[in-house]
Simulated scan of single mutants.
Amino acid sequence: MKGLIKFYHPDETLEYHIRKCFCKVVFLNKKNTLVVEIESDDDLDHVEEDSYQNEYPQVSFSIEDFEIPVKTIQQLYGKSFQIPSYDEKENENGEVEELYYTNLNLNDEEDLETDNNELKFGKDEQGNLKLIWQGYCEDFITQEDPLRFKVSCSFINDILEIDD
């Protein structure tokens, strides 16, 4: 297993197993930026019949275009970042643009912002890059107080075998 995603709703904790994830440092517009994508599977065998999670069988998180002071994945080990959901920056034409860094997608349909994003990078037991991402998102279940979430995943190098 590559990791878990948990949403801490007052009524129940929703738990998702991660199907795929990747992390890259990309050189974009003369800056090093972080790109992360994490997608859950849609297996609900571990979920009770009356769980809210049955309405939201799959979620995915992403981070794009967030400038970071590292050039390689190896330099992420031991680093922590606070990432805003979005930021307003002036472009080269003097116009203010909104840049969205984080996203939570439910069932490939609904996009939500995440807030108070804290990312901590380290190593797992096998030496792979590990990410702990904590923050808050809109309460997509009852639309009340924001939901706290936690993502824990390891970026494992899958070996691709091609038959001749």
Rank of each mutant, 00 (worst) to 15 (best):
N157E: 13
Y136Q: 13
L147V: 06
V70L: 04
Y77A: 15
K24M: 06
S152Q: 07
F149T: 11
K20H: 11
E110W: 03
I83E: 00
I83C: 00
L112G: 04
L129P: 07
I63Q: 03
G135K: 00
G135V: 03
K30F: 07
G3V: 02
Q82S: 12
K71F: 01
D42V: 05
G135M: 01
P57G: 10
Q134V: 15
E98W: 00
G127R: 08
E39G: 10
L131T: 11
I38C: 07
D139G: 00
E15G: 06
D158H: 14
E109G: 12
N116G: 15
D163E: 09
Q75R: 04
N54V: 10
F7M: 02
L99D: 05
V59D: 06
I63P: 02
D163H: 11
Q53N: 04
P10V: 06
Y52G: 00
K89G: 02
L14T: 00
G127N: 09
D111W: 10
W133P: 01
I83K: 01
D41T: 09
E48D: 14
V26C: 08
D11R: 08
E12N: 13
D164E: 15
K30W: 09
N54R: 15
H46R: 13
H17D: 13
F61R: 02
Q58S: 11
E138I: 13
Y100Q: 05
S85D: 08
E109F: 06
K123D: 11
F121H: 03
K150T: 15
E98I: 10
Y8D: 14
K31G: 00
E109Y: 09
E161S: 01
E12P: 05
Q134C: 10
K2V: 14
L4W: 03
N103G: 12
I162T: 09
D43K: 13
I38W: 03
N116W: 14
F7C: 03
G122S: 14
L104Y: 03
L99A: 05
D163R: 03
G3Y: 04
L4P: 01
I162L: 12
E113P: 06
S152H: 11
G78E: 08
S40Q: 01
L99Q: 12
E55P: 09
N54G: 08
K6C: 04
Y52M: 03
D163S: 04
I5R: 05
E15L: 12
Y56R: 01
S152M: 06
E90S: 15
G127D: 05
I132Y: 07
D65W: 08
N117P: 02
L34E: 07
N107D: 12
D115R: 14
V151Y: 00
K150L: 13
N128D: 13
F66W: 01
L106S: 10
L131W: 06
D115V: 04
E113N: 09
K31E: 10
Q53P: 06
N29H: 12
